[in-house]
């Protein structure tokens, strides 16, 4: 039997799981953004630290965190799996570059996804791994003090630039991802598809733009 026939999950099921995991991450990003924006409040980090402490101690959130990691893992695993299968499906490639019109950046989901992943690892080293004690915090900053950690980080312009680029690719990824996820779970309808596309783009702009505001704010105003 061909190895593909032995697969237990069909192509559509796999895609749908990936899409649902993606949509879950989409919700998480909004929460994350909301908390981060508190960094901009001119209160010496009281609001932000309060929220961060809540997130770090509340038992419900602790459970949600595990689910969230699961979501990331599933999304990435399926994303890579789908991409591998897709590359196999065309063993001999075209000589001439494809000129077909496609949904913007949709051909580069794996690429933007990988960049976002690299960024995520970096981001973990900067914050999460410090929190859980895998990485030692920089001198003078406590393990749980994300506020001062952020201030220190964005004081470095080069580092801020890395974050900005990371967010940019996150935006590219999201712009296609959100509406594609709706398509994958079967929600493409003559009446509301245009709405979904607009929503998807707005979401991408708000999330990417929102995250980018923070380093920009630190560069420009602090």
């Amino acid at each position: 039997m061909d190895r593909s026939e032995r697969r237990t999950l069909s192509s559509i099921t796999g895609k749908v799981i990936m899409a649902l995991a993606g949509l879950f991450l989409v919700v998480f990003l909004l929460v994350h953004l909301g908390i981060n924006l508190l960094l901009l409040a001119d209160d010496g980090g009281r609001a932000f630290t309060g929220a961060a402490t809540f997130m770090a101690t509340n038992p419900v959130i602790r459970i949600a965190e595990v689910v969230l990691f699961g979501g990331f893992l599933i999304h990435m695993m399926f994303g890579v799996g789908v991409s591998i299968r897709n590359r196999r499906s065309r063993p001999v490639r075209y000589q001439h570059k494809s000129k077909s019109e496609t949904s913007p950046l949709s051909k580069y989901m794996l690429h933007s996804g990988i960049i976002v992943f690299i960024f995520l690892v970096l981001h973990f080293i900067d914050f999460y791994f410090i929190k859980v004690g895998l990485v030692a915090p920089p001198a003078g900053i406590e393990r749980h003090d994300f506020y001062h950690r952020s201030l220190l980080l964005f004081a470095d312009k080069g580092y801020s630039a890395v974050y900005l680029v990371g967010f940019l690719f996150l935006g590219f990824h999201l712009n296609h991802a959100v509406q594609a996820a709706f398509q994958t779970i079967g929600m493409n309808h003559s009446k509301y598809i245009d709405g979904i596309k607009v929503f998807s783009m707005l979401y991408a702009i708000i999330v990417a733009g929102g995250f980018m505001t923070i380093p920009l704010w630190f560069i420009l105003f602090r």
Binding site: S10, S11, G14, S100, S106, M109, H176, T184
Partner: peptide, 22 residues
């Protein structure tokens, strides 16, 4: 039909919509 399609070695949809354009 989906099971048969999968077994024949076609790729997955990644919603690029090139198919619709072409």
């Amino acid at each position: 039909m989906v099971a048969t399609m999968d077994s024949l070695g076609f790729g997955n949809c990644s919603n690029t919509y090139a198919c619709e354009a072409e």
